[in-house]
Write a protein that binds this DNA or RNA. Sequence first.
DNA 1: GTCTATAAAGGGATAGAC
DNA 2: GTCTATCCCTTTATAGAC
Lengths: 223, 223
Amino acid sequence: MTPADTRERLLAAAERHFSQYGFAGASLRQVTADARANLAAVSYHFGSKEDLFVAVVERLMAPINRERLGLLDQAESRAGAAPLEVEALLEILIGPVLRARKGGGRTLRLFARSQIEDPALCKRIVEGPLKVIKPRIEAALARALPHLGRQELAYRLHFTMGAVKSVAGDQHALRAFSRGLCDPDDVEGTLRQLVAFLAAGMRAPGAAARRSPRRSAAKERSR
Amino acid sequence: MTPADTRERLLAAAERHFSQYGFAGASLRQVTADARANLAAVSYHFGSKEDLFVAVVERLMAPINRERLGLLDQAESRAGAAPLEVEALLEILIGPVLRARKGGGRTLRLFARSQIEDPALCKRIVEGPLKVIKPRIEAALARALPHLGRQELAYRLHFTMGAVKSVAGDQHALRAFSRGLCDPDDVEGTLRQLVAFLAAGMRAPGAAARRSPRRSAAKERSR
DNA sequence: GTCTATAAAGGGATAGAC
DNA sequence: GTCTATCCCTTTATAGAC
């Protein structure tokens, strides 16, 4: 126990408790007990419960987003001027999350919670860990899917993240809903299923094509 | 104020508070104050906070599931022996939820929360309001998508519900993530986007086809 | 940096009068 | 059915000793 790895132990324990019980449901007493630290250590190291939560999410997302950015840079430089494949982009978006510790369970649960819990908390997450990666992914997807309008792409990206989060909603929800057929611990299998499903959804014709197949894509793209 | 519409007012207030603050985050004191009822009324009418939560979810889901069952019966009797279209099935699955009060926001948020909060709570919901409707939808989808194995269908149905829940995750998440492009209050527009996206995902080739296009579908279906 | 002790507030549940 | 009053527990946060 080096000095002030108390901070690390607090983060690790908070990660467990917040992802399992949510922000309101987790108590600092339990967190500090689990971290073998003192209750007052939270105030000292982080300031408040909310600050601790944000620190946990940031610590969890930082390496994932670094990996995503690296893969994106790599793929784009390999592709040169050509747009990337949708499947490749989805892999880059989803793979690093799912492959994170425990199949990304805690990461995704925490992320899902940060969106559904207090809006203020949500805002801090969106403006923090997501600030840089989201526009990059969005731009790459727009190039890969020129048939989609901006609104349509936004919808589909949102649906995509919803589907991804669903695999970690409850630790046992996927297993229970599928009556044992699906194994959320099978990260690679789940990832293949997700990518196949979402890539097809992304490639679906846009609204313009659905309403009148002959309309030029230019108008739709500007929506 | 007829006698014991206190019960109704409690349910309505609890619906607001639970959907906004979650199970742990909502307090019975605030709920009862909002319902202009006495704190002790919760114990009298429902028993406990958890029982109140379950009652709220049941009250919210019952009419939705009734509508789904009605639409399913209708569609199936019209179709006779033929399987239903995927789009029609998705409309039946999703339409009634989204069209519920406030674009289904509270319903979906509460449903999402029941899955992510305490697993015990989740279990009570899954075994209650979902008991009858889920197998029906699943069976109809299996007929509509004979190219999918049981595992694959289970995955995709799970992803589907994740995408649906995502439109209500945070009241403003969709709007914020899309920087105003998507309007979650535009129920019919959101529904069209969801159905188009999800139907394409559902129709995507199965794993058997992806691995070896010539393999018969029979083996895959039995997975 | 870490601790104890405590402040100050809020939680769910319930007994018992009406 | 509804109310008051209260029990008993837990919460976050902080002051101040070490």
